[in-house]
Design a protein around this nucleic acid. Sequence first.
DNA 1: GGAATTAAATTCGAAATGGTACAAAAAAGT
DNA 2: ACTTTTTTGTACCATTTCGAATTTAATTCC
Lengths: 219, 219
Amino acid sequence: MVQKSKKPPSAAKIDAPVAPKRRGRPRAYEPDVALGKALDLFRRDGFAATSLDDLSAATGMNRPSLYGAFGDKRELYIKSYQRYRDDARAAMVDIFRAEAPLRERLERIYRIALDIYLSGESGPRGCFTVMTAASEAVSDPEIRTMVLAGLTELDKAFGICFREARERGELPEGADPAALAHLASATIHTIAIRARARVPRKELEAIVKGALDVMCGAK
Amino acid sequence: MVQKSKKPPSAAKIDAPVAPKRRGRPRAYEPDVALGKALDLFRRDGFAATSLDDLSAATGMNRPSLYGAFGDKRELYIKSYQRYRDDARAAMVDIFRAEAPLRERLERIYRIALDIYLSGESGPRGCFTVMTAASEAVSDPEIRTMVLAGLTELDKAFGICFREARERGELPEGADPAALAHLASATIHTIAIRARARVPRKELEAIVKGALDVMCGAK
DNA sequence: GGAATTAAATTCGAAATGGTACAAAAAAGT
DNA sequence: ACTTTTTTGTACCATTTCGAATTTAATTCC
């Protein structure tokens, strides 16, 4: 116990996630899980219909703590949306990068999408971008930028899929990857909307299958 | 001025829209235009973010009058949505019924859709079904029913288009009208969302063109 | 002209909302 | 033990919100 000085600064950069020995009273919440709860609420009810009291109850943080940790309601909304996009991207990026036949890749993407849209205790939660962020996008430039980034990111990911597939001969020479990508995104959007109207998963899967038949050629 | 009695009751049934000689103080507003103003607000801001004061200001009716004429906020919202669907249907029904080549019919439908989604003084208004009604649909069964009706109505109208086109030989035998109809609806949905994010009309038209190329065969 | 009827306009009230001020609490540093 | 720092928890405030009660105005019927 003689050498009880601070851990060698050489490892300082490495174990950033472990106890940073903060100075004051420790937090009674985990910022990440709290943000997840906030995200759930915003997804279900949208920006305006979600009150700070609701958020406070869901996160277990009282309002001043919420404010201190995330800023005002709008900032919390934006951070929630950021988190949603990060999660969605993380869930899909491996599939988009995978070396697999076009149809299989797309099937896996849509399976993930349906998982995201249909989960939720109090009904299917749909897609944050489609359901609530797009609404705010008209009047809020910052949210609009994020929505646009989300939309084009998806378009591009699909576009790469189709371009690679064409190069591999899975699609006819004349196929237009950009147009197909927009259709693939459109299919994402339509199932997000229908999920929110409680269309059962079976029907959504049928819609996806029909779209895949058109986009990839009938199986 | 001798024969100043009411107009002959024989014409009563015919000119229903003219003065019905109501009993009390006449209305200071036209219910139809007031509902249109309410619709505009709900489309722009959604249900929760639209206050009765906003609605009162926009319609020129004070709150008790609003309440008396349309019921509470939720009823007004539902009536607005009803009105939106009626307007949209009216704008499209002739095109859907028209005797014209598939591609031309679809082009006209999408032109109307873009007109609807992109209009609005304070930014593009998007689609009521997609932007606000679908959000409410999770928790409100009545709204959900209307949303589902709107979605399937569009699917069916597109389905008829594609079925007729196949019968006329405009599509290959193996084409699946139901799947194509879902893609056509999906394209409606995706442009509604993108319009809301202020994607310019030119880009939306390009997306539509690409979708048409895939669905109808490149021109 | 007066009663009846319908709607407008004013006003009220209870609850909820977003945000903040301030004191108490829990930890680390000295 | 005492100070410093950070967070919690309570209470508060001004404003907004939805809804309704009440009064006033405009019209038709008798």
